[in-house]
Simulated scan of single mutants.
Amino acid sequence: MFTALLWIPATIAAAAAQTLRNAMQRSLTDVLGTVGATQVRFLYGFPFALIFLALVTTVTGEAVPLPGGRFLAFVTGGAVAQIVATALMLAAMRREGFAVTIAYTKSEPVQVALFGLIVLGDRLTLLGAAAVIVATLGVILMSVKPGSRLTSLARGGPALAGIASGACFALAAIGFRGAILALPEGSFLVRATTTLAFGLGIQTLVLVLYLALFDKAALVGSFRAWRPSLFAGFMGALASQFWFIGFSLTSAANVRTLALVEVFFAQIAARRLFAQTASRREIAGMVLVCAGVAMLFVAQ
């Protein structure tokens, strides 16, 4: 019974750790640029993932599961989707408030439902359709600036970047859960940690090669800013460890729905770290997004 419910505290812990990591990455964006700050969570998180894997296998006495082609396909897809998602999120944060950008990405579960309808032909129930409408209205409400004739959605601004980030995070969640389930053996903890190590390894390789070829200044800068980057990497690896534990125990939809608590953690971080405050309109939009995703969860 305890194991069956372990995904709940794991998800809450992941949301809290991810909020701290996002805040640190947001601070590094001005120094390293969007791609440079994106690779920090992977480059500095990978060693911690290896440490986690060593600790888990030592404590449990289990061997690292042997990955197959299906596992590698899922984990690579999830890794690439998460890179794109993180870059889009940080790009949106440079032009929009920290907490509001996080709220944009929380449309992720709604987008999973839409992808299912378009790609797989999965029909939405009446409550599910209402959930999509409510959450979409919430995003639009956050996007409208009083006195402006065009919304940030219409301009293709930070709102679109945040929503696209949520879509990529949704694809990443599906990829990582698929990878965990594709491993042939091991406890939920070993399979989750193995997937984390492979995922961060792939992400580190991809981004280091990219920066070495196209943005050496950002790569060198990330090594120079090793102290704040090390903290961001640790918090990123810790958050992912908890996310993957959740994915190994229940559906990605359950985990990502409960992950909405991150919106409120982000509000606290925005106030304390960036002196940003959300307007009543933005708060109302966040509430609608949360209500829409919660309705979608009930519909499922």
Rank of each mutant, 00 (worst) to 15 (best):
L5Q: 07
W7P: 14
I8L: 12
A15I: 03
A17K: 07
T19I: 00
L20E: 06
V31I: 10
L32Q: 02
G33A: 08
G33V: 13
T58Y: 09
T58W: 07
V64D: 03
P65G: 00
L66K: 04
G68N: 08
R70D: 14
F74D: 09
A81W: 04
Q82C: 00
I83D: 05
I83W: 04
A85W: 10
L88M: 12
M93N: 14
R94N: 11
F98P: 02
K106H: 12
V110G: 14
Q111R: 03
Q111V: 15
Q111A: 09
V112A: 12
V112W: 06
F115M: 14
I118R: 08
I118W: 14
L124Q: 15
L126R: 11
V132G: 01
V134F: 05
A135F: 01
A135R: 05
L141D: 02
G147N: 05
G175Q: 06
G175E: 10
I180Q: 06
L181H: 10
V190Q: 06
T204A: 11
Y210G: 07
L211T: 15
D215I: 08
A218G: 10
V220Q: 15
R224W: 02
S229R: 02
F234T: 11
W243R: 06
G246D: 03
L249A: 11
V255R: 06
R256E: 15
L260C: 01
V261C: 15
V263I: 14
F264V: 10
F265L: 03
F265Y: 12
I268G: 04
R272Q: 09
R281N: 02
R281Y: 00
G285H: 07
V287G: 02
L288W: 10
L288G: 02
A294Q: 00
